[in-house]
Design a protein around this nucleic acid. Sequence first.
RNA 1: GGAGGAUUAGCUCAGCGGGAGAGCGCCUGCCUUACAAGCAGGAUGUCACAAGUUCAAUCCUUGUAUCCUCCACCA
Length: 884
Amino acid sequence: MKAVELSKSYDPKEFEDRIYRQWVENGAFHPDPDGCSHFSIVMPPPNVTGILHMGHALNNTLQDIIIRYQRMKGLKTLWVPGTDHAGIATQNVVERQLAKEGLRRQDLGREKFLERTWQVKDRHHEIITSQLKKMGCSCDWDHERFTMDEGLSRAVREAFVTLYERGLIYKGQYLVNYCPKCGTALADDEVEYENMPGKLYDVRYPYADGSGFITVATTRPETMFGDVAVAVNPDDERYRDVVGKELLLPLTDRRIPIIADSFVSMEFGTGMVKITPAHDPNDWECGRRHGLEAINLLNADGTLNGNVPQKYQGMDPVSARKLVVEDLKDAGYLVKETDHAHDVGHCYRCHTIVEPYLSDQWFVSMKGMADKALKALRDGDIVFYPKRWENTYVHWMENIRDWCISRQLWWGHRIPVWYCRKCGKMIVSRTDVTECPDCHSHDLEQDPDVLDTWFSSWLWPFSTLGWPDRTPDLETFFPTSTLVSAYDIIFFWISRMIMASEEFTLKAPFRDIVITGLVRDKQGRKMSKSLGNGIDPIEVIDLYGADAMKFTLCYLAAQGQDVQIDMDSFKMGSRFANKIWNATRFLLMNAEGRTLVDIDAGMLSVMDKWIYTRLARTIETIDRAMAGYRFNDAAQAVYSFFWNDFCDWYVEATKQRLLHGSDEEKDLSISIMIDLLSKSMRLMHPFLSFVTEEIYQRLPGSTGMLISQRYPQVDPAFDFPVEEALVGSLQEAVRIVRAARSQLGIAPEKRFGVVIRPSKDFTGTSLFIGEKELMASFMGASTLTIDVDSSVDVSQAYPSSALGYEVFCFVKEAIDIDAEILKLEGEIRKAEKNLEGTMRKLSNPQFLQNAKSEAVEKEKGKKAEFEEVIAKAKDHIGLLSRLK
RNA sequence: GGAGGAUUAGCUCAGCGGGAGAGCGCCUGCCUUACAAGCAGGAUGUCACAAGUUCAAUCCUUGUAUCCUCCACCA
């Protein structure tokens, strides 16, 4: 057989792109039509505002691992990729560009602005998909979607109109969170609160009848022009008599009443609150309870409007506050100001201070949907990994508020509502409307607002599969199997997808919800553009390769925990990929000219049996880990199997046979190794996709692509637990001699005699005798004698002990006898202490009664073990003393 | 004000009822014809603190401390 040679050093650049192209060209990412059952994932669509960061890399790495694993398990797998139009965020990007040219979006007009935004979308989309490909994501590109493509736009309209028809969408004037910079309403959860220093102002409001004044406390004196009352707690003894009296609002001459409402805290401030319904959510509620008017003070750009005195008009609230405070002070109304830190809402996109703003908006009524979503969890239709996120989910669902879905933006799905300019009729429609059904006028105007981005992404798991049509894809792949997402969008996205799915399809959108941690830098800070501490996945790939990145992330991704990394972290994965490469290179070198033979269990040596058994245990570990989405456990299992078991022990043990054996031995040996290597490639493929594919295709006997091969399963004919344990003893003996050599400072090239003296009941004696040469070579021993009956005189040797046997090294000249005796005495003390603990347990009747029988047996075993250690150590001290 | 997470080797983190682990770093010795991105050996831990449950606690319960998230919010 002519073996293919691997290039001398591992260079992922040489093959990663080529392999990816090959996968795509061969349709390897398409669902296997013959797959037994389906397995599907929809990718959380990245925003087209930017490029992918490490969080995306982690997220998509884990999805790719799951998908590749399930695909190799023989399932019909589909991974749907796509991108999100990200309304506010993308519009902001374009507006920033325009600002650099000194333009506003209004200067371009809606149509031109959208054209430009589509260009930005296209550019970022291009980058994002190329990044996903570089990472090796095995998503089905034929299924790629965009939240504003034609099909998804239709789904959005369908959802909107259906909800409207069910009475779950309504329009009205409400107090909403409003970002003056973005010029749009925001949903409650799009507001981020930040603690900021501020002042609490005590302001006098005089009675209208001139009989004195009361004092209110406020952090926002500039909103006083919108005050419609002052409220006190009805149980507040201090103010019982003043309820119902009228006040004169300072700086104006408006009269407002004092009312009683139990939301007012008696402890805070003066116990008197100014009620400004148009500018505070609590006041809004209070105003509604008392039938009070709401006076809006703001323009759409966040400046003060005509409802405030002339001199403040057009100012922004912060500057107006200063001036109002000055004026109050001058007029003698300001009693005092105290420092008062409080949380101020900011826009999650542009970080401007958000104002409560009274405006006409569209809302979705959420309560009923939340109940269904809660039921889905209770019924076990959805399961969170890790489980603790269920609390967060339940808490949010139980406290849900109606969702403001209209945005005063241009980029997004236009609200499918038309108004007749002639008769004023409102038409909600799935299709574009050109004629009023009532008055037949053609003078119609579509609602200028667009929908919240999340109103399209909450449909993602089924809209991407063809909903509202009952497509074959929808029939086959919905509900999807698993969702992988970071915890920061549980509310925005995950919860809402569950609600939408239950509402529109009567099913949960996915069963398993895998919540990943966030990627942080080594200082534990979230990676962000503003901090400049982000790591670019592409830079990692350029430096170390996609496999190195993927494997490292997987290895570090303990379920739900944040991962802290820097550029150097990826060396770990890189070294591992390099190790795989070189091990393969060695085997292929030795495959040159050999004839591969079929392997059956009868041909196996004890080391062969051992490594096959290690493989079986590793497969089990990975299956268990993957079933529970414990990716780090799976990564650890493949790492230690391949590196520690396969390379360090098995390949080393087999080298003699491979390099110096007979032709038959060489043929058999290389055949087994190629088989193991091939299985290892399958085993590792989900975690290191490129390098395993590249290697697999060069292995003799390989057919097709690795990506489409079956995942290894435990083969009972190649599972030898007894031999596995015996080789464990053999390894221990080797370690003892190596350690003795190292600790006694004996040069590597120095060879010496070793005697192993097994105890009578040791089960490994015949194995040791059979593998004498192998052990001697591992130990660097010149001779190895294994002698149960102790006919060899060991009085001149350096003694060590293990469970079941003793090891004697003939290196008398190197021994520091006194130091060794001290060491042995230490060992005895330690063993005696351990023995004491064990004896305490064994003499405790409660332990014998209550503990599991395995625990008792183990304890008995330990007793014998400690006794053996002590006896041998004492014996060895005797031997060493005689050496003096 | 609620909820959750973290606290284990110098660093980053696994483990989570029955004798403390990994990677990196460090020390010692080796370029042993796959790999110096390597091989062999080694050192390092009151498993945050305090009580409790248990025959047995790094692991379960409660409390404390420090750090970090999220949610709610009294002007």
